[in-house]
Nucleic acid binder design. Structure first.
Lengths: 250, 250
DNA sequence: TTTCGTTTTTGACGGACCGTCGGAAAACGA
DNA sequence: TCGTTTTCCGACGGTCCGTCAAAAACGAAA
């Protein structure tokens, strides 16, 4: 019993170590530079051992996502505690999403890849289930805030529009904005300004459209966001991905 | 001269053939099932010949995107001609985006992959330039419609909000919604309804929030969209991707 | 029609990577 | 100390990408 848990603890620690290496590698060398052989080489372990933790490369990626998602739930939890009207708390969620995206730049990449390479088919079902679970928790927090808005009388949805639809809208807006920002199009040359600034404004306008009080014309969004960052997320720093890519990308 | 163009014509045709094969393969077997060897096997050409058309696999993907984007511009052009108020024409763009996404399901996948695998670094710069060009044309059409809205007095943007920001918002909303729909999460179990239906409604609410008349409460969106589909896009059919995947995915 | 230089096509090959598997090594228990 | 069980290892088969020297097709001149 005792020896079993010790063993298990060792395994846990090793898994965390492996994920850490993998995360760094994904960030520094890109997806193509993330290889099982390299992970084996950089740790003291062999490939066979690594394959006892992860069924395959795709499974490893999902594991990375689960880890990141856990962190996101934590940020969402914090955001939900913001003292203010529900719309302000939802704005805090927006700040959390933004910070999460900037402080965990590998997540978006992993998410993209998981979606693209039909990775879901190959990953371990148990791991996929935990991913779904943690995803549901993030969403649940958002649903709760929207419902609080209705309860407080700030939010009166049109018939047929449910809180889930509203949340899906905000989610889409953010998801899409980051996706667009990440595919490195020459946004300026196409006529756009700072995509993050635009996203914030657009999120406000969308909530306006949903009739969620107070309307964005009635408060200072920038000041609110600054307060949220200061009060809740002072410790979260946005680490941008390494600018030129230190290692040979391929 | 004549012989040159004949040769060139042959090359063009062959390129189109190769792209067709590649597109089908991407759709049927997924990204991992799309291999240069297989393309060579399915056509009468050898791998070396294929590599005279495309610098590498990533370049092939970008070529696929350029082709698809051209089609999208065509749909956008049609949408822009819809006889109605600017907001209705922008809704027609939305219908076009929807149809494009459904009738060209490989595009989203290619786009995702291009973004993810740092493919931009490896693709031919000339091809990337033409991709950017065709992208700019799509956006230009949208900018034009929004400006028409301002000119018609239907749209009064808040200070600091530009038409580009509005378009980026709509783009994000759609991009994100499709991205979310495509990663095959169990949306129902998470509490969501039909994502497309929700997207349509949310797009309307976003335009409401921007103050674009007529507000969605003042007209019948479903009827409008039906009219748009009937008048402009009767010939466009949404071919969904093969349900179970006919070939061995790996 | 034949010859000969040029262009195009080919597919075998090197290299990289994934995932496996039989056996070595370590841990364990008596 | 020795057998048993668990864990670990890394060489290997297979797949795929991208290259390149040789072969084939082409076309102009003889």
């Amino acid at each position: 019993m005792s020896t079993l848990t010790r063993k298990q603890r060792e395994i846990r620690e090793r898994e965390a170590l492996l994920l850490g290496i993998a995360r760094r590698m994904l960030l520094e060398r890109g997806y193509l530079g993330l290889t099982m052989d390299r992970i084996a080489a950089e740790t003291e372990y062999s490939k066979g051992t690594i394959y006892q933790h992860f069924a395959n490369k795709e499974d490893l990626l999902v594991a990375l996502m689960v880890q990141s998602c856990g962190r996101r739930v934590e940020l969402f939890d914090r955001a939900a505690t913001f003292r203010g009207r529900p719309r302000e708390r939802m704005t805090a969620i927006g700040v959390a999403v933004e910070l999460f995206h900037l402080s965990t730049p590998d997540f978006a990449q992993a998410e993209t890849l998981v979606k693209a390479s039909s990775i879901r088919d190959k990953a371990d079902p148990v791991r996929l289930a935990s991913l779904e679970d943690v995803e549901a928790r993030s969403l649940g927090i958002c649903f709760g805030i929207a419902r609080d808005g209705i309860a407080a009388g700030d939010l009166a949805l049109r018939p047929g529009h449910r809180v889930e639809d509203l949340v899906l809208g905000l989610w889409s807006l953010h998801q899409g904005a980051f996706a667009i920002a990440d595919m490195d199009l020459p946004l300026e040359r196409l006529g756009f300004g700072d995509p993050l600034e635009t996203l914030r404004r657009n999120a406000g306008l969308f909530m306006d459209g949903c009739g969620w009080l107070p309307l964005s014309s009635d408060y200072d969004d920038a000041a609110l966001r600054a307060r949220i960052r200061g009060e809740l997320f002072a410790d979260v720093t946005a680490t941008r991905p390494a600018p030129p890519g230190p290692g040979p990308a391929r």
